[in-house]
């Protein structure tokens, strides 16, 4: 086992409560049983020992070696209370696994009953239940780590392998006006690309919302469609939505939340609340709207990846 895994096991042993590594359905012998009945139960359930209970109180423990002794000495018809071990090591369910690992195993006990703080029997731990549960937890944390690694690999991959003074990934999409069947396709592609690049989910969400609002504006408000361009660099994402008409008469006015020129049929589809540009502004690090009435419109949106750049910022870009 590599050293980091050993520390992981140690960490788990000292942080995992017994409760989460115990078997909850404890097979028990009632104190009224005879050794014959205990033998039967052990064979049936294929177990080598069990607690002896009086209601929900544990009064002792009986194991296969006690049974062998009873057979050897002709005591097999005696009640279990006469042959059980009464001095039983137990553990509280909120104790850590570290407390029991050393007492279990070939030189210790085969099983240790688990009690709650009121002394009720709530479970049992064996080497088997401990190993099974710790392995599962290690597997979960291993998988999580692997996923993260893969994401990071994908992310740094392109900007590490393709080196230049200014590496930039450009995605370009044509957006048709009034084409609601395809509206959002460009945004969907951009979202998927950012995910594959291993970008932070929170950032992906912000970009997705902004691009989608921008794309819908091209669909709704232009008469000739336009294009969406995403420029992805190591430390920033720039989105541009560009069209050739009809342009905006009063840029100040359209930036006000709630202002919209969308016709009723567009509103019936759930669009045209006048919140698009406000949403974009809120999601992004900066937004710039340029327009010429009768000409075209250009919307530039910037996202900075300063907290989580794509891969290490080892290569210095000359400019941008």
């Amino acid at each position: 086992m590599p050293p980091e895994d050993i520390t992981k096991v140690q960490e788990l042993i000292y942080t995992t409560p017994v409760e989460s590594v115990m078997a909850k359905d404890v097979i028990v012998a009632d104190l009224s049983m005879t050794m014959v009945q205990v033998k039967q139960l052990m064979r049936e359930k294929r177990i080598s020992g069990m607690p002896v209970v009086d209601g929900d109180r544990m009064v002792g423990i009986i194991s296969i070696s006690d049974l062998i002794k009873a057979l050897e000495n002709g005591l097999i018809d005696r009640p279990v209370v006469e042959l059980m071990t009464t001095n039983v090591q137990t553990v509280f369910k909120d104790s850590y696994v570290a407390e029991v690992v050393n007492s279990l195993g070939p030189r210790g006990f085969g099983r240790i009953p688990v009690l709650d703080r009121d002394g009720r029997l709530v479970g049992i731990v064996t080497t088997g239940t401990v190993i099974q549960n710790l392995l599962r937890q290690m597997d979960i944390s291993f998988k999580k780590k692997e996923e993260e690694k893969l994401q990071k690999y994908r992310a740094s991959h392109i900007f590490d392998d393709i080196v230049s003074d200014d590496t930039c990934l450009v995605l370009r999409f044509v957006v048709n006006d009034k084409d609601f069947d395809n509206a959002g396709k460009a945004s969907s592609q951009i979202k998927k690309s950012l995910q594959r690049l291993g970008m932070q989910p929170a950032l992906v969400r912000r970009v997705s919302v902004a691009v989608y609002e921008a794309e819908i504006n091209l669909v709704i408000h232009t008469d000739v469609g336009g294009e969406m361009i995403a420029r992805i660099r190591r430390d920033r994402i720039q989105i541009s939505a560009v069209d050739h008409g009809p342009g905006i008469e009063d840029v100040e006015q359209v930036l006000k939340p709630g202002f919209s020129t969308a016709p009723q049929w567009i509103r019936d589809m759930g669009f045209g609340a006048g919140m698009g540009l406000a949403n974009i502004k809120r999601c992004s690090d900066s937004m710039r709207l340029l327009s010429e009435f009768g000409g075209g419109t250009r919307l530039d949106i910037l996202f900075l990846l300063r907290d989580h750049p794509v891969g290490p910022l080892s290569v210095s870009g000359k400019n941008s």
Partner: peptide, 12 residues
């Protein structure tokens, strides 16, 4: 309409 689904997708 399909845009509901698209919007859902983009909003997570």
């Amino acid at each position: 309409n399909p845009q509901v689904v698209r919007t859902a997708e983009m909003a997570g």
